[in-house]
Design a protein around this nucleic acid. Structure first.
Length: 656
RNA sequence: GCCCCGGUAGCUCAGUCGGAUAGAGCAACGGUUUCCUAAACCGUAGGUCGGAGGUUCGAAUCCUCUCCGGGGUACCA
């Protein structure tokens, strides 16, 4: 049952008597912005009045006259320029609550038109430890998968792992030259990760050594331009002056940025040169950049040694990543990484050439597209394939295997151009009805407004972040429990609560932001465990559980058999209505794939429960009937909270 | 150069399709605990929604211009 849909269904016939284009007008029916207006409001009389050349209030009146909502609404009211305000009948709310109470799905219906959806999310490079940048894709993708499934869609969650690229060339090169065998035997992944970073450092050093003088040259050149421009500005008057000054500002900011980059690069280089041991190694491995690429090429060509190493490394790397997924309770249906598609790539390119969709240009095989100057390259001039090629092969595989209606790519918004091109290309390749959708998201920033990194400029490991969150949560749990006259929790329970709270905090912080905007990642704030956080929601759940613990063993069962609610207090009524809006919030999530619609819903629910909790004693209610009604409301709240959080991938605890 | 995204309270952010007096959380200030979990609640204060025009009954939202910031832009993913 979805109240909004119900109301819209009732408006449809009334509207269709007045106009043809009904749907956009139905969209203008929504929850009331202010409770004093009622519960829902229809804003369609104003535009319709204009369209018909009638006073909007008259149109509103006509709509109201025709509207058949008596069974669940009070008499609609017309306000202001022509708003139609609807207030739900208390008896009807009562009946709906009763229905939700006895329904494991809390009154949320499955869709009547289920679809097949492939979601591409998380997709880390397996050779590197997961870092903070992987949170968003993983958590958002997981949430969307859960919500879609809950509403009855068939979901294939696919972790498109980076398991075949240059990073393996690095590890292989590192393993061949620098491996510490005892460290490898003890903890292979840590050693491989060290090798990756080590080799990466060598490659960056040599690349940097070449780049630095070029950068110096650029800076000198730009300095000249700036000086010249300054004198131009001095000599110019009037309108032109402003223009010239603008140009100067631009050049100056470019210069500042270049200098900053140069300084960073120089610092990195001197880090190496000031370390004699490292310097010696660096000098011994002059050609490391090319060598790494060659190792990769050999792997792709099926070189026995490299393939054997890859086969040895891969399971270990995946295990490492799996540990993080286990911690976060993230599960995929399939994990077809890049390597899975490797032997299909040549054929994909051939198909494109045969179909005339691609042609050679400057040695590369390119797909030229109408709206873009730069083509999408599917084979490099050196013969290597690119991620665009793999993505196309992936699409083909998914089409053949699952015939999806929708393919979601939960990937950083910086890749939006890539996906636009990819989708355009795929559409001309398949000419099928499938809908492609890049579900982009903003960057995770540090407190300085720059992409989140450690002080030394490295990316922040995901696991250490999780550890930090859990540790902070643990400190709070212990403190709170010890403050009680009689501490309640065992060490083990405290630890478990800390895990649930800590992990929940991180996920929630991510999901509660609008996915398209960048957001600032501040562990202190996130783990402040107050305000709009997972903790607040978990806490409201735990409070309900506490009531039931006190109410006795049978209370829950009795509460779930309540048939009549008493919604006399405004807090009770508000809570009841919010409970019945659960399905609306899930629909909202799917309109534009925005989990924050659900976090907002749950936060409001928790707030309303808090108000209810303050004003409406449950166990000490004046009458038995009221007590039962309130217990039932509490039961519904806790179940909605648990289910809602579960759809976000967040757990609850019975007490905290 | 071209393309995309953003600019909303001191800070971090919500704000679908144009709707009634622009909302949360944090921080600030004041209050609430003989009462089911105070990880809570109530109240106060805080805004020319970057700026200027325009569209209209009505604009944070749509259009144009402009300022500022971020990102992308032929062989990385």
């Amino acid at each position: 049952m979805n109240i909004l849909s119900l109301i819209r269904d009732r408006f449809r016939p009334a509207l269709s008597h007045l106009t043809e284009a009904v749907d956009p007008l139905l969209e203008m029916i929504r929850p009331a912005q202010d409770a004093s207006f009622g519960d829902y409001q229809a804003n369609c009389a104003m535009p319709l009045g204009k369209q018909l050349g009638l006073p909007p209030r008259e149109v509103a009146q006509r709509l109201v006259d025709e509207l058949d909502v008596e069974e669940f609404c009070e008499q609609p009211e017309i306000a202001g320029p022509g708003f139609i305000n609807l207030r739900l009948k208390i008896d009807w709310l009562d009946a709906q609550l009763g229905a939700a109470l006895s329904d494991a799905r809390l009154g949320v219906d499955e869709t009547s038109s289920p679809t097949v959806v492939v979601i591409d999310y998380s997709s880390p490079n397996v050779a590197k430890p997961m870092h903070v940048g992987h949170i968003r894709s993983t958590v958002i993708g997981d949430c969307l998968a859960r919500v879609l499934r809950h509403l009855g869609h068939q979901v294939i969650g696919d972790n498109h792992l980076g398991d075949w690229g240059t990073q393996f060339g690095m590890i292989i090169y590192g393993y061949k030259h620098f491996v510490n065998m005892s460290a490898y035997r003890e903890n292979p992944v840590m050693e491989l990760s060290r090798l990756y970073q080590y080799v990466n450092r060598l490659v960056e050093f040599h690349a940097g050594k070449i780049k630095l003088p070029l950068q110096e040259e650029k800076i000198t050149q730009l300095e000249g331009q700036v000086n010249e421009q300054m004198s131009v500005c001095r000599d110019t008057d009037g309108k032109q002056k402003k223009k010239q000054e603008k140009l100067l500002r631009k050049q100056q900011s470019q210069l500042a940025q270049l200098r900053k980059e140069r300084d960073g690069l120089a610092a990195k280089l001197s880090q190496v040169t000031s370390d004699p041991d490292l310097l010696r190694v660096v000098e011994e491995h002059q050609g490391v950049g090319v060598a790494v690429l060659q190792e990769t090429v050999r792997l792709h060509a099926g070189d026995e040694t490299n393939l054997a190493l890859w086969n040895e490394f891969l399971p270990k790397c995946r295990e490492e990543i799996q540990r993080v997924y286990d911690r976060l309770d993230i599960h995929f249906d399939v994990e077809y990484g890049e390597s899975f598609y490797h032997d299909q790539l040549a054929e994909v390119v051939d198909q494109f050439l045969d179909a005339g969709l691609a042609r050679e240009s400057e040695g590369a095989i390119c797909v030229f597209l109408e709206d873009w100057e730069a083509p999408m390259i599917i084979r490099k001039k050196d013969g290597a394939f690119l991620y665009a090629t793999t993505d196309l092969a992936t699409i083909r595989y998914r089409m053949e295997t699952w015939q999806p209606d929708l393919m979601l790519y939960v990937v950083d918004h910086r890749q939006s151009e890539h996906f636009s091109k990819l989708f355009t290309t795929a559409r001309s390749w398949f000419k099928s009805e499938v809908e492609y959708r890049h579900v982009g998201f903003g960057t995770v920033l540090g407190r300085d407004g720059r992409p989140y990194r450690t002080r030394s400029g490295d990316t922040v490991g995901l696991e250490s972040l999780l550890d930090e969150a859990v540790a902070k949560a643990h400190a709070v749990v212990v403190e709170n429990d010890q403050r009680k006259p009689e501490p309640e929790m065992s060490d083990e329970e405290r630890m478990q609560v800390a895990r649930v709270v800590g992990h929940g905090a991180i996920k929630y912080a991510d999901l509660s932001h609008n996915r398209t905007s960048d957001y600032e990642f501040d562990t202190d704030k996130m783990l402040a465990l107050e305000g709009n956080t997972a903790t607040y929601l978990q806490y409201s759940y735990a409070r309900v559980q506490s009531i039931f613990r006190r109410a006795g063993a049978e209370a829950r069962r009795h509460a779930q058999q309540v048939t009549t609610f008493d919604l006399g207090h405004p807090a009770e009524r508000a809570l009841a209505l919010q409970l019945l809006r659960f399905s609306e919030s899930l629909e909202e999530v799917l309109i534009d794939f925005r989990p924050n619609q659900l976090t907002d819903y749950l936060f409001k629910l928790a707030q309303m429960y808090s108000v209810f909790f303050e004003h409406c004693p449950v166990l000490k209610a004046e009458t038995d009937g009221l007590r039962h009604s309130r217990l039932a409301l509490s039961d519904l709240t806790s179940r909605a909270m648990k289910q809602g959080l579960a759809l976000l991938g967040i757990e609850v605890v019975e007490r905290m």
